[in-house]
Simulated scan of single mutants.
Amino acid sequence: MGDGRAQGGPLPFFRSLRFRVTALVVAVLFAPTLLYLRIELPRLVAITLPLSLLLALWLTRRLVRPLEALRRRALAKIHEPTPSADLPLQGSAEMQDVAAAFNALLAALAERRKANEAFVTDLVHELKNPVATIRGCADALAEAPAEHERAARLSRLLKESSDRLDTLVSQFLELARAEAGMLHEARERVDVAALARGLVVAMADDERFAKVRFTVSGASSARVVCVAYRFESVLRNLLENAASFSGDGGKVHVSVDVVEGRRVEIRVSDTGSGISAEDLPRAFDRFFTTRGREQGSGLGLALVRAIVEAHGGAVSAASNPGRGATFAVELPLAPAL
C-alpha cells in the first residue's frame, strides 16, 4: 500500500498546479494582444477586402481585357476576304508578343495563299496549251476530208497532247496528295539502300539511258519508315532527272549513308551542265523547268520535295555550273526493332 500512495501522492497535484500557473502566465502575457486583435480584426477586414477587390479589378483590366480585345480582332480576320497581318502591338510586352505571333501567322498564311494562287494560275495555263492543241486538231479534222499524211500528223499531235495532258493531271493529283501529307497511306520499313541498288540496275537497262553510266555506293542497309511506292518514285524521279541532264557519256552516282546513327542521307549526282545560280533556288518550284515544256512539266522535283517533307525529311540541291548537280535527301532512320 505504501507503493500505491507514493504513485498517487502529491506528484500529480504539483503537475496540475504547474500547468495552471503556466496557463495563467500565458493568458496574462497575451491578453492585450488577443484583445487588440479582437477589436482591430474587423477593421483590417474592412480595409483589405476593398483593396483586394480593387486589385482584382485592376488585374482584370490590365490582363484579361487586352487579351479579349486581341481575340476579337483575330476572329474578325476570318470575315476579311484577304486577312492582313496588321494586328496592333498594344498593351504589355507579353500582349505585344502574342499580337506579333498572330501577325507572323497571318503573314505566313498570306504567303501560302499567294503561292496557291500562283499555282492555280500556272496550272490553268499548262492545261490550256494541250487542250487548245487538241481542239485545233479536232476542228481541222472536222472541217474537210483530210489526206492520209495530214490525218496522220494531226493524229500524232492529238495523241502527244492528250498524253501530256494526262501526265500533267496525274502529276498534279499526286502533288496535291503529297502536300496534304499522305495521312491515310500505309507506311512500312523500307531498305532504301537496297531500293537504290535495284533502281540503278533498272535504269542501266533502260534503253533511254543506254549511254549513261550508273554507279551506287554507301551503306549496305539503311531503313526508313515510308510509303514504299511513293519513295520509290522519289528516287526514280531523281535518277531520271540526273540521267537526262548527263546526256550520252555522262555519269550518275547514287550514295546512301547512315549519318550519326539518326538519319539516312541519299545523294544523287550527275556530270551534266549543272544548274545556274539564278535557277538553283527555284529548282523545286512547281512548273519550273529548264528543259522546255515539251520535255518536262516542271512538277517532278516539286513532287519529290512534297513526298520527302511528308515523311519528315528534307531535300536540297547544289551545283557548280558546268560540273553537274547533286540532289540530297535526308530522312529519319527507322528505329531499331
Rank of each mutant, 00 (worst) to 15 (best):
A104L: 14
N237W: 02
R230K: 01
H184M: 11
E40Q: 15
A107D: 13
A325R: 08
V124A: 11
Q171I: 01
A151T: 04
R282P: 06
P88V: 04
A27S: 13
R153S: 09
R18M: 14
A99C: 12
A180L: 09
N241C: 11
V120W: 00
V201P: 05
C137N: 13
L154C: 11
G313L: 04
V169R: 01
A336N: 07
K211V: 02
S233R: 00
G322F: 03
E111D: 14
A243P: 03
V192Y: 04
A180T: 02
L89Q: 08
V308I: 00
E111G: 13
E185Q: 08
A277F: 08
L123Q: 00
T215R: 14
L199F: 03
L337P: 08
A107T: 09
F172S: 08
M95I: 12
A101N: 09
R18N: 12
F102N: 07
A334I: 06
V28M: 11
T271D: 07
P88N: 05
I307Y: 00
L106W: 05
F209Q: 03
R323M: 05
T60A: 09
V212Q: 10
V64W: 14
L337I: 11
A283K: 05
E68N: 13
G9I: 03
L301I: 01
L106T: 11
E126W: 02
H311D: 02
E240G: 15
V45M: 12
F172E: 05
L54G: 12
T33R: 15
L141C: 05
D166Y: 08
E80I: 07
L331E: 11
A104D: 15
A334S: 15
L44V: 04
F14H: 12
A176C: 08
L44C: 10
E174S: 07
G198E: 04
E126F: 03
R5N: 13
R38L: 13
G261N: 03
F30M: 14
V45P: 05
L49K: 10
S220D: 15
F288Y: 01
A243Y: 05
A178C: 02
H125Y: 07
L57T: 12
V264C: 05
G322M: 06
R18F: 07
A56G: 15
L141T: 12
E94S: 13
E143R: 15
A204Y: 03
R293S: 10
A196R: 04
G91L: 05
S246K: 00
H253Y: 06
S233N: 13
A85H: 09
S255C: 10
A93H: 12
A194Y: 06
A219H: 01
S233H: 11
D205L: 13
D279G: 01
